[in-house]
Nucleic acid binder design. Structure first.
Lengths: 208, 208
DNA sequence: GAAAAGTTTAACCAAATGATTAAACTTTTC
DNA sequence: GAAAAGTTTAATCATTTGGTTAAACTTTTC
């Protein structure tokens, strides 16, 4: 027998590559088998069907990135620090695994059921009964540390700003040739500009 | 003969629905034919192959939304008005045709070549030699109307903030049950919050 | 009004593809 | 060490699917 499920790991690794490259419908079981260096029938032996294999790959990948992101979240009552940490983590997590965006997008196509459940289970595993970020914003407003914004709206804005360059990279590099949207230099500047925009945009009315 | 290419229109309409619903790989020529009420061979008679039919549908859909958006762009030297107009138009265009996001996303998966070319051709048809938005921002900075931001970064931020709720709607409505992310009320609030965040975030250092 | 051109259909094809089967090979069990 | 359990493979299957063909039907042309 294979200790540590060596074959299973080989399959998942190969399947991840192929699914990310071709999409669920575009992926071919034969290609996955070839890349894993095994017989096609073994895929079914381990995962029964293409659907189940895809589910497995999807869950594994997305969950690992989410965990990574949530583990890096800062616990602080200083909203500037908290928001800066959020931006930095989000962009870092995506730059480490930009491919997951495609999984998430495909899932949205399917209706988002599964990923919604997954996110909620990740949060509840960590003992949160509510999405933490808007709550943090609400508390900062209560303390008068930032002006009265809609917490949910601010959350959407932050995610959108962090996500978009990764999402549209392939188009952007055609529209703005010469800009390297995934280079560390660009991403550092992005972090800085997003934070400055947001922080100046939400600091209390009178304050600096 | 069919005046105004009646059959062709029926095909494009049916194909748009099916491609949007199932994706390019997931779509079946038979389903398109059924929905158009014609024989499958006619699809090939008019469009030769699935690939070409998809290209046609994609171009038609995306181009119409882009045109719509660009036609509504305001010509003004007041950056507040200009930015507000951008946000309003972007969100309105997407709320009218939220499905196009899926086409664009799929295209990104394919490498973004085609859509990059399409966007550039749309701009050059209108006599722009450069993407207009960052240029406008640069000019406003030159006039001292807004603080020194990176024009490209601000552009990305705006698009990301406007796009994200549409992109992730299906997930968000699971994470925040009770919020209706495509309702007019929500979208109006979104426009307002995005503008306020950005405007407060970029007004000149001393000014109000 | 008949030949030509254009449009539509039913039937068919070849290739691809996810899945299954039965047998061979390997490891574990007792 | 042989039976049992677990793993892997080659061969095969059934179905799906994009695409083709040849004939029928309709409109245009002259």
């Amino acid at each position: 027998m294979n200790f540590t499920g060596e074959t299973e790991q080989k399959i998942i690794r190969a399947a991840t590559e192929v699914f990310l490259h071709r999409g669920k419908d575009g992926a071919r079981m034969q290609e996955i088998a070839d890349r894993a260096g095994i017989n096609k029938a073994l895929l079914h032996y381990y995962f029964r069907s293409k659907d189940r294999l895809y589910q497995k790959v999807f869950e594994t990948t997305v969950k690992s990135v989410f965990d990574e992101f949530l583990n890096a979240i800062l616990e602080t009552e200083d909203p500037a620090l908290f928001i800066k940490g959020f931006i930095d983590n989000y962009i870092d997590a995506l730059s480490r695994r930009p491919e997951v965006i495609r999984f998430i997008i495909w899932e949205i196509d399917q209706g988002g059921e599964q990923i919604g459940r997954m996110i909620q289970s990740i949060f509840s595993e960590r003992g949160f009964s509510e999405i933490p970020f808007p709550l943090k914003i609400q508390q900062a407003i209560g303390r008068g540390q930032i002006r009265q914004v809609e917490p949910l709206q601010l959350t959407l804005s932050l995610i959108g700003m962090c996500l978009y360059p990764f999402l549209a990279e392939r188009i952007l590099e055609k529209l703005f040739p010469g800009v390297s949207f995934s280079s560390p230099g660009f991403l550092e500047m992005r972090k800085k500009e997003v934070f400055e925009l947001v922080w100046k945009g939400i600091r209390p009315e009178g304050g600096a």
